[in-house]
Nucleic acid binder design. Structure first.
Length: 583
RNA sequence: GCCAGCGUAGCUCAGUGGUAGAGCAGCGGUUUCGUAAACCGCCGGCCAAGAGUUCGACUCUCUUCGCUGGCUCCA
């Protein structure tokens, strides 16, 4: 489809979804005449509307509301638009406090109202011509939502719905949701025995099981090698540090909500570190640095602890203790652009290595409350922009969304099913170098403040693994697969041959296992398949005699029988080159 | 933290005021088998925790903990 046509379709869908939210509001009003209405916009795939109702909704209410919506749609009543003065609007919505609040904030002298049937709502529009144009609708969930997203306001009741052009498109969407549930990293994490999070140990704290640990270690080794290759120095810093350090940094002030309470160690207060930067700064500061030494890049897979409210914890992607793939770059201002360019290159290399394709780049600029002068911000933001352009990346500006200490670049990428994930982030820091007096000696023999860059390219091991599990649906590429080859002896008399081959594979650095159970091969194949093991080698009389193996992929595809040595070599090569598959 | 829903065996789920059930997994046997589930048997639960109502609570009420979907926030 041509881009403009695609866009037109999107707009039309959005209009229809927005109209669907009005129809839902009408249905809700029929059920609760005293309902107060918040807002009801179109969102991705559907719409929502926020209501203030006399009683709480439960999921059983949805079918009734949906039923009412269907009758409104079947009646095919027209949407009519009317312009009224603000004064008139206030009269019209006299019993609707939320609408009044919105009217009061509008700059225009007139507001538009839309009516369908007996239901009137203040709305910018546009809408479809009549309710009959709303095709396939389904209400999916209820939720509490603060009025205007502010937790100091009253919590309203939100109903989410989805709406599409055709029933087929709706069904497709529901099927996609089902597929996403099937790939949910929490579900696959348990099924594939990768990790667990247990109440008994503590919510938001991850226990990595052997198989999950293999994947993590492979990624970490890859990450470290690549960083060393790119001129980073690997460092390690402790998980606890004296609280005073965090007062100096300003975290105690700006970051208090995320910090755990201090513990007393021989009369001194210590806290779990929420970030790795201070350790790196103190390493840097153990000696004087010449301008010639810069840039210095310290990298650490650093585990940090942050308090997260109980309601926001989610599998591996939102936890209370996590390991960032962190690094801090200390450089001169004139080196900043090259350094940012280098990080962008590394970030893209990582995205590519894990086969993510769609990504979106955001550049966040100066917020109201910030450290550093506007001029320095302006200059640094310009440098980030230049680096992005040099890398040939298109990006969007997120005005005022920078961290208080400097502008930043965020890259979001999409998993195979189109779910968006927070990926690499690069932040310039104007706050810490002056606070900790982080300097170098310049050509002029004087001390100069360094420019500091915080960056991650994966985010955190926990969140990144969540992404990967869902991206691959648990079927990891060969180099990451916890078990790479499963040997399946046809009968007990083939155990010896299977063990011999497994031994040779292991000697070649390939993770191989023999299924020694007294089961039929159908059963063993099914098991291996469910475990998403890349290759199954069925070995029986034929193979033992000829020194060959019968290779089956986890996709179910059967490869030609082949000499074992050739198979071993191909697997070794595929692992080394981190390709998805052999041949 | 807030709103709603949920919490029964390792997993997936039945049960609904009268002292708990299935399939899979696990364990013990039998079967030695050629590309997605062989057969028989056994074990397994303070029904999330605590309090209350009741002659009697997995079931009803309250509190706490946790999980799920949102809100807010973020690696």
């Amino acid at each position: 489809m041509a881009p403009e046509k695609e866009q037109a379709k999107e707009t039309r869908l959005e209009t229809m979804r927005h109209s669907a939210s009005h129809v839902m509001a009408e249905a809700v009003k029929a059920m609760f005449p005293e309902a107060k209405f918040g807002i009801g916009p179109a969102i991705e795939a559907g719409f929502y509307y926020d209501f203030d109702l006399p009683r709480t909704l439960n999921p059983d209410d949805l079918p009734a509301i949906e039923e009412k919506m269907r009758s409104i749609i079947a009646a095919d009543t027209p949407f009519t638009r009317k312009e009224v003065t603000k004064e008139e609007a206030r009269r019209l919505f006299a019993d609707q406090p939320y609408k009044i609040e919105l009217i009061d904030e509008l700059d225009d002298e007139t507001v538009s109202v839309y009516q369908q049937g007996t239901f009137t709502d203040m709305c910018r529009g546009p809408h479809v011509n009549s309710t009959g144009e709303i095709k396939a609708v389904k209400l999916v969930s209820t939720a509490g939502a603060y009025w205007r997203g502010d937790e100091h306001n009253k919590m309203l009741q939100r109903i989410y719905g989805v709406a599409f052009d055709t029933q087929e498109a709706l069904d497709e969407h529901l099927a996609r949701l089902k597929e996403m549930a099937r790939r949910d990293h929490r579900k696959l994490g348990r099924e594939l025995d990768l990790f667990s999070i247990q109440d008994e140990f503590g919510p938001g704290l991850v226990l990595w099981h052997p198989k999950g640990a293999i994947i993590r270690r492979e990624i970490e080794d890859f990450w470290k090698d690549e960083h060393v290759r790119r001129g980073y120095d690997i460092v390690y810093t402790p998980h606890l540090a004296r609280m005073e350090l965090w007062r100096t940094s300003g975290h105690l002030e700006f970051y208090l909500d995320y910090l755990y309470s201090p513990m007393d160690v021989e009369g001194q207060k210590y806290i779990m570190k929420p970030m790795n930067c201070l350790g790196h700064i103190l390493i840097y500061k153990t000696k004087l640095h010449s301008y010639r030494e810069l840039p210095i890049r310290y990298a650490e897979l650093g585990t940090v602890y942050r308090y997260e409210r109980s309601g926001v914890l989610h599998g591996l992607s939102r936890v209370r203790g996590f390991t960032q793939d962190d690094a801090h770059i200390f450089c001169r201002f004139d080196q900043l652009e090259d350094e940012i360019t280098g990080v962008l290159d590394l970030a893209l290399f990582m995205i590519d290595s894990f086969q993510f394709s769609n990504y979106q780049v955001m550049l966040s600029t100066r917020p109201d409350k910030c450290a550093g002068s506007p001029e320095v911000w302006e200059k640094a933001t310009g440098i980030l922009r230049k680096a992005l352009e040099r890398a040939g990346l298109s990006y969007e500006i997120d005005p005022g969304e920078g961290v208080f200490y400097g502008p930043k670049i965020d890259i979001k990428f999409e998993s195979a099913l189109g779910k968006a994930w927070q990926g690499p982030t690069i932040q310039v820091d104007f706050n810490l170098p002056p606070r900790f007096d982080v300097t170098y000696i310049g050509e002029d023999g004087q001390e100069h403040s360094v420019v500091m860059v915080h960056r991650t390219v994966l985010g955190s091991m926990e969140r990144f693994l969540a992404t990967l599990i869902e991206h691959y649906g648990g079927a990891f590429p060969l180099w990451l697969a916890p078990v790479q080859v499963k040997l399946i002896p046809v009968a007990d008399r083939h155990l010896e041959y299977a063990h011999k081959l497994a031994g040779e594979l292991k000697a070649a650095g390939i993770r191989a296992e023999v299924d020694t159970r007294a089961e039929r091969i159908n059963f063993k194949i099914r098991q291996a398949q469910l475990e998403k093991i890349p290759y199954m080698l069925v070995v029986g009389d034929k193979e033992a005699e000829a020194g060959t193996v019968s290779v089956r992929r986890r996709s179910g595809e059967q490869l030609a029988d082949q000499p074992f040595d050739g198979f071993k070599k191909k697997v070794s090569e595929a692992i080394a080159s981190r390709t998805m598959d052999i041949v």
